[in-house]
Design a protein around this nucleic acid. Structure first.
Ligand code: ZN
Ligand code: ZN
Ligand code: ZN
Ligand code: ZN
Lengths: 131, 131
DNA sequence: GCAATCATGTAATGTTATTACATCAATTGC
DNA sequence: GCAATTGATGTAATAACATTACATGATTGC
Protein backbone atom coordinates (compact mmCIF):
# COMPACT_ATOMS: atom_id res chain seq x y z
CA UNK A 1 0.00 0.00 0.00
CA UNK A 2 1.33 3.39 -0.98
CA UNK A 3 1.43 5.67 2.02
CA UNK A 4 -0.83 8.67 1.48
CA UNK A 5 -0.04 12.11 2.79
CA UNK A 6 -0.41 12.03 6.53
CA UNK A 7 -2.91 14.29 8.24
CA UNK A 8 -1.93 16.73 10.94
CA UNK A 9 -2.70 14.38 13.82
CA UNK A 10 -1.09 11.41 12.12
CA UNK A 11 2.04 13.47 11.55
CA UNK A 12 2.17 14.56 15.16
CA UNK A 13 1.85 10.98 16.41
CA UNK A 14 4.36 9.68 13.87
CA UNK A 15 6.88 12.34 14.88
CA UNK A 16 6.41 11.58 18.55
CA UNK A 17 7.13 7.91 17.94
CA UNK A 18 10.01 8.55 15.57
CA UNK A 19 11.76 10.79 18.03
CA UNK A 20 11.23 8.47 20.95
CA UNK A 21 13.98 6.18 22.15
CA UNK A 22 11.62 3.28 22.60
CA UNK A 23 8.00 2.25 22.44
CA UNK A 24 5.28 4.49 23.85
CA UNK A 25 1.80 3.75 25.10
CA UNK A 26 -1.10 5.62 23.56
CA UNK A 27 -1.53 7.63 26.75
CA UNK A 28 2.13 8.55 26.86
CA UNK A 29 1.81 9.84 23.31
CA UNK A 30 -1.27 11.77 24.36
CA UNK A 31 0.66 13.45 27.14
CA UNK A 32 3.50 14.35 24.79
CA UNK A 33 1.06 15.97 22.40
CA UNK A 34 -1.00 18.01 24.85
CA UNK A 35 0.99 21.08 23.90
CA UNK A 36 -0.02 20.49 20.30
CA UNK A 37 -3.70 20.48 21.17
CA UNK A 38 -4.33 16.83 21.88
CA UNK A 39 -7.02 16.38 24.51
CA UNK A 40 -8.50 12.89 24.21
CA UNK A 41 -7.25 9.30 23.74
CA UNK A 42 -9.23 8.93 20.57
CA UNK A 43 -7.10 11.48 18.80
CA UNK A 44 -4.14 9.21 19.39
CA UNK A 45 -5.89 5.93 18.67
CA UNK A 46 -7.32 7.19 15.41
CA UNK A 47 -3.92 8.32 14.20
CA UNK A 48 -2.33 5.06 15.33
CA UNK A 49 -4.92 3.01 13.46
CA UNK A 50 -3.94 4.67 10.22
CA UNK A 51 -0.21 4.52 10.89
CA UNK A 52 -0.53 0.81 11.65
CA UNK A 53 -2.49 0.33 8.45
CA UNK A 54 0.23 2.12 6.47
CA UNK A 55 2.91 -0.01 8.11
CA UNK A 56 4.71 3.00 9.58
CA UNK A 57 4.13 1.88 13.14
CA UNK A 58 3.99 -1.46 14.90
CA UNK A 59 2.01 -2.42 17.95
CA UNK A 60 3.78 -4.42 20.64
CA UNK A 61 1.07 -6.67 22.01
CA UNK A 62 2.96 -7.72 25.08
CA UNK A 63 3.55 -4.10 26.11
CA UNK A 64 0.35 -2.43 24.94
CA UNK A 65 2.64 0.03 23.25
CA UNK A 66 3.60 1.33 19.86
CA UNK A 67 6.88 1.80 18.06
CA UNK A 68 7.92 3.42 14.78
CA UNK A 69 8.87 0.92 12.12
CA UNK A 70 12.62 0.76 11.84
CA UNK A 71 12.76 -0.54 8.29
CA UNK A 72 14.75 1.61 5.92
CA UNK A 73 12.51 0.92 2.94
CA UNK A 74 9.75 3.19 1.77
CA UNK A 75 6.88 0.97 2.94
CA UNK A 76 5.59 0.69 -0.60
CA UNK A 77 5.45 -3.05 -0.12
CA UNK A 78 4.39 -5.31 2.70
CA UNK A 79 7.36 -6.24 4.81
CA UNK A 80 6.11 -9.64 5.84
CA UNK A 81 6.40 -11.05 9.32
CA UNK A 82 7.87 -8.65 11.82
CA UNK A 83 9.53 -9.84 15.01
CA UNK A 84 10.91 -7.98 17.98
CA UNK A 85 13.31 -8.45 20.82
CA UNK A 86 12.28 -6.40 23.83
CA UNK A 87 14.71 -5.79 26.68
CA UNK A 88 13.10 -5.77 30.12
CA UNK A 89 16.09 -3.87 31.44
CA UNK A 90 16.48 -0.82 29.22
CA UNK A 91 13.30 -1.04 27.17
CA UNK A 92 15.21 -1.32 23.92
CA UNK A 93 13.20 -2.82 21.09
CA UNK A 94 14.84 -4.32 18.03
CA UNK A 95 12.80 -5.15 14.95
CA UNK A 96 13.87 -7.95 12.68
CA UNK A 97 12.63 -10.03 9.79
CA UNK A 98 13.56 -13.54 8.94
CA UNK A 99 12.59 -15.39 5.84
CA UNK A 100 13.22 -18.82 7.35
CA UNK A 101 10.75 -18.23 10.18
CA UNK A 102 8.23 -16.80 7.79
CA UNK A 103 8.52 -19.87 5.58
CA UNK A 104 8.24 -22.26 8.47
CA UNK A 105 5.18 -20.55 9.92
CA UNK A 106 3.63 -20.53 6.50
CA UNK A 107 4.18 -24.28 6.18
CA UNK A 108 2.69 -24.93 9.60
CA UNK A 109 -0.40 -22.79 9.10
CA UNK A 110 -0.95 -24.21 5.64
CA UNK A 111 -1.00 -27.66 7.18
CA UNK A 112 -3.89 -26.50 9.41
CA UNK A 113 -5.62 -24.79 6.49
CA UNK A 114 -5.33 -21.65 8.54
CA UNK A 115 -5.40 -18.33 6.69
CA UNK A 116 -2.97 -15.96 8.39
CA UNK A 117 -3.82 -12.29 8.60
CA UNK A 118 -1.37 -11.03 11.18
CA UNK A 119 1.57 -12.61 12.93
CA UNK A 120 2.93 -11.43 16.26
CA UNK A 121 6.40 -12.47 17.39
CA UNK A 122 7.76 -10.80 20.49
CA UNK A 123 10.75 -11.99 22.45
CA UNK A 124 11.09 -10.64 25.95
CA UNK A 125 14.40 -10.88 27.75
CA UNK A 126 17.57 -8.91 28.30
CA UNK A 127 19.87 -7.32 25.78
CA UNK A 128 23.61 -7.48 25.67
CA UNK A 129 23.96 -4.43 27.91
CA UNK A 130 21.43 -5.56 30.50
CA UNK A 131 22.40 -9.13 31.30
CA UNK B 1 9.21 -27.11 37.71
CA UNK B 2 7.09 -29.66 39.47
CA UNK B 3 3.54 -28.43 39.84
CA UNK B 4 2.63 -28.13 43.51
CA UNK B 5 -0.81 -28.85 44.84
CA UNK B 6 -3.11 -26.10 43.65
CA UNK B 7 -4.92 -23.93 46.16
CA UNK B 8 -8.68 -23.55 46.20
CA UNK B 9 -8.71 -20.41 44.07
CA UNK B 10 -6.12 -21.75 41.65
CA UNK B 11 -8.20 -24.90 41.21
CA UNK B 12 -11.35 -22.91 40.54
CA UNK B 13 -9.64 -20.78 37.89
CA UNK B 14 -7.95 -23.80 36.32
CA UNK B 15 -11.24 -25.66 36.10
CA UNK B 16 -12.98 -22.67 34.57
CA UNK B 17 -10.34 -22.46 31.86
CA UNK B 18 -10.19 -26.20 31.28
CA UNK B 19 -13.91 -26.44 30.76
CA UNK B 20 -14.06 -23.42 28.50
CA UNK B 21 -14.23 -23.83 24.73
CA UNK B 22 -11.75 -21.05 24.17
CA UNK B 23 -9.74 -18.34 25.87
CA UNK B 24 -11.27 -16.22 28.63
CA UNK B 25 -10.42 -12.79 29.95
CA UNK B 26 -9.70 -12.41 33.64
CA UNK B 27 -13.00 -10.60 34.11
CA UNK B 28 -14.94 -13.30 32.31
CA UNK B 29 -13.38 -15.84 34.65
CA UNK B 30 -14.33 -13.63 37.57
CA UNK B 31 -17.96 -13.62 36.43
CA UNK B 32 -17.97 -17.40 36.05
CA UNK B 33 -16.69 -17.80 39.58
CA UNK B 34 -18.98 -15.37 41.40
CA UNK B 35 -21.10 -18.30 42.51
CA UNK B 36 -18.02 -19.81 44.08
CA UNK B 37 -17.34 -16.72 46.14
CA UNK B 38 -15.12 -14.70 43.84
CA UNK B 39 -15.63 -10.98 44.31
CA UNK B 40 -12.58 -9.13 43.03
CA UNK B 41 -10.25 -9.20 40.01
CA UNK B 42 -7.27 -9.84 42.20
CA UNK B 43 -8.55 -13.25 43.16
CA UNK B 44 -8.39 -14.19 39.50
CA UNK B 45 -5.11 -12.47 38.70
CA UNK B 46 -3.34 -14.02 41.65
CA UNK B 47 -4.45 -17.50 40.64
CA UNK B 48 -3.53 -16.87 37.02
CA UNK B 49 -0.04 -15.69 37.99
CA UNK B 50 0.63 -19.03 39.64
CA UNK B 51 -0.96 -21.09 36.89
CA UNK B 52 1.16 -19.25 34.33
CA UNK B 53 4.24 -19.89 36.44
CA UNK B 54 3.43 -23.60 36.60
CA UNK B 55 2.87 -23.70 32.84
CA UNK B 56 -0.73 -24.86 33.17
CA UNK B 57 -2.11 -21.77 31.51
CA UNK B 58 -0.96 -19.49 28.71
CA UNK B 59 -1.63 -15.82 28.26
CA UNK B 60 -2.63 -14.65 24.78
CA UNK B 61 -1.08 -11.22 24.54
CA UNK B 62 -3.00 -10.15 21.48
CA UNK B 63 -6.33 -10.95 23.16
CA UNK B 64 -5.60 -10.06 26.78
CA UNK B 65 -6.97 -13.47 27.56
CA UNK B 66 -5.94 -16.78 29.04
CA UNK B 67 -6.20 -20.36 27.88
CA UNK B 68 -5.50 -23.72 29.48
CA UNK B 69 -2.39 -25.41 28.14
CA UNK B 70 -3.36 -28.08 25.69
CA UNK B 71 -0.22 -30.16 26.03
CA UNK B 72 -0.81 -33.73 27.05
CA UNK B 73 2.36 -33.96 29.11
CA UNK B 74 2.53 -33.56 32.84
CA UNK B 75 4.25 -30.15 32.80
CA UNK B 76 7.16 -31.56 34.73
CA UNK B 77 9.44 -30.05 32.11
CA UNK B 78 9.50 -26.77 30.27
CA UNK B 79 7.74 -27.10 26.96
CA UNK B 80 9.79 -24.52 25.12
CA UNK B 81 8.38 -21.97 22.75
CA UNK B 82 4.62 -22.03 22.47
CA UNK B 83 2.81 -20.68 19.45
CA UNK B 84 -0.87 -20.18 18.73
CA UNK B 85 -3.21 -19.79 15.82
CA UNK B 86 -6.22 -17.70 16.77
CA UNK B 87 -9.29 -17.67 14.57
CA UNK B 88 -11.03 -14.28 14.38
CA UNK B 89 -14.17 -16.00 13.24
CA UNK B 90 -14.93 -18.65 15.81
CA UNK B 91 -12.36 -17.82 18.48
CA UNK B 92 -10.72 -21.20 18.23
CA UNK B 93 -7.17 -21.26 19.56
CA UNK B 94 -4.71 -23.95 18.60
CA UNK B 95 -1.46 -24.36 20.49
CA UNK B 96 1.56 -25.75 18.74
CA UNK B 97 5.27 -26.21 19.20
CA UNK B 98 7.93 -26.34 16.54
CA UNK B 99 11.53 -27.18 17.06
CA UNK B 100 12.66 -25.55 13.81
CA UNK B 101 11.24 -22.18 14.78
CA UNK B 102 12.67 -22.49 18.24
CA UNK B 103 16.10 -23.22 16.82
CA UNK B 104 15.94 -20.38 14.35
CA UNK B 105 14.86 -17.87 16.97
CA UNK B 106 17.61 -19.10 19.23
CA UNK B 107 20.16 -18.53 16.49
CA UNK B 108 18.87 -15.05 15.80
CA UNK B 109 18.79 -13.93 19.41
CA UNK B 110 22.19 -15.43 20.08
CA UNK B 111 23.55 -13.31 17.25
CA UNK B 112 22.29 -10.21 19.11
CA UNK B 113 23.60 -11.51 22.43
CA UNK B 114 20.03 -11.31 23.60
CA UNK B 115 18.99 -13.49 26.51
CA UNK B 116 15.46 -14.74 25.89
CA UNK B 117 13.12 -15.12 28.83
CA UNK B 118 9.75 -15.46 27.14
CA UNK B 119 8.70 -15.81 23.53
CA UNK B 120 5.28 -14.87 22.23
CA UNK B 121 4.09 -16.18 18.87
CA UNK B 122 0.46 -15.54 17.98
CA UNK B 123 -1.01 -15.90 14.53
CA UNK B 124 -4.33 -14.20 13.94
CA UNK B 125 -6.43 -15.20 10.98
CA UNK B 126 -9.20 -17.58 10.03
CA UNK B 127 -9.41 -21.29 10.52
CA UNK B 128 -10.48 -23.88 8.01
CA UNK B 129 -14.13 -23.55 9.02
CA UNK B 130 -14.21 -19.77 8.97
CA UNK B 131 -12.65 -18.80 5.66
C1' DG C 1 -25.46 24.40 -3.74
C1' DC C 2 -25.48 19.76 -2.08
C1' DA C 3 -24.30 15.03 -1.01
C1' DA C 4 -20.67 12.14 0.20
C1' DT C 5 -16.50 11.37 2.44
C1' DC C 6 -12.97 11.99 5.61
C1' DA C 7 -10.77 14.19 9.57
C1' DT C 8 -11.55 16.07 13.94
C1' DG C 9 -13.31 17.31 18.83
C1' DT C 10 -15.35 15.91 23.13
C1' DA C 11 -17.62 13.24 26.63
C1' DA C 12 -18.74 9.18 28.50
C1' DT C 13 -18.04 4.59 29.19
C1' DG C 14 -16.04 0.00 28.96
C1' DT C 15 -12.21 -3.22 29.74
C1' DT C 16 -7.94 -4.81 31.74
C1' DA C 17 -4.60 -4.74 35.55
C1' DT C 18 -2.33 -3.14 39.83
C1' DT C 19 -1.57 -0.98 44.47
C1' DA C 20 -2.50 -0.81 49.26
C1' DC C 21 -3.96 -2.64 53.30
C1' DA C 22 -6.10 -6.08 56.35
C1' DT C 23 -6.94 -10.83 57.80
C1' DC C 24 -6.26 -15.70 58.25
C1' DA C 25 -3.90 -20.25 58.21
C1' DA C 26 0.08 -23.18 58.10
C1' DT C 27 4.92 -23.72 59.18
C1' DT C 28 9.17 -22.97 61.53
C1' DG C 29 12.29 -22.03 65.31
C1' DC C 30 12.92 -21.74 70.00
C1' DG D 1 3.42 -23.56 73.73
C1' DC D 2 4.22 -19.48 71.21
C1' DA D 3 6.38 -15.66 68.48
C1' DA D 4 7.94 -15.10 63.88
C1' DT D 5 7.67 -16.04 59.21
C1' DT D 6 5.51 -17.27 55.10
C1' DG D 7 1.85 -17.91 51.93
C1' DA D 8 -3.05 -17.53 50.71
C1' DT D 9 -7.03 -14.74 50.84
C1' DG D 10 -10.46 -10.70 51.03
C1' DT D 11 -11.70 -5.99 49.85
C1' DA D 12 -11.48 -1.34 48.19
C1' DA D 13 -9.60 1.89 45.47
C1' DT D 14 -7.15 3.29 41.65
C1' DA D 15 -4.43 3.08 37.42
C1' DA D 16 -3.84 1.93 32.62
C1' DC D 17 -5.62 0.83 28.19
C1' DA D 18 -9.32 1.17 24.66
C1' DT D 19 -13.93 2.01 22.51
C1' DT D 20 -18.68 3.93 21.67
C1' DA D 21 -21.55 7.70 20.62
C1' DC D 22 -22.44 11.95 18.95
C1' DA D 23 -21.37 16.48 17.02
C1' DT D 24 -18.68 19.50 14.01
C1' DG D 25 -15.73 21.04 10.26
C1' DA D 26 -13.12 20.53 5.82
C1' DT D 27 -12.74 18.61 1.08
C1' DT D 28 -14.25 16.67 -3.08
C1' DG D 29 -17.27 15.63 -6.92
C1' DC D 30 -21.30 16.69 -9.24
ZN1 ZN E 1 8.69 -2.55 10.43
ZN1 ZN F 1 18.70 -3.72 27.74
ZN1 ZN G 1 1.11 -25.38 26.55
ZN1 ZN H 1 -12.75 -20.30 12.99
Amino acid sequence: MATPQLTKNQTLVMDALSHSEGPMSAYTILDKLRDHGFRAPLQVYRALDKLLEYGLVHRLESLNAFVACSCPHDHEHDHGVTAFTICEGCGQVTEFHDEAIEQRLSTLTRAQNFKTEKTTIEIRGHCQSCV
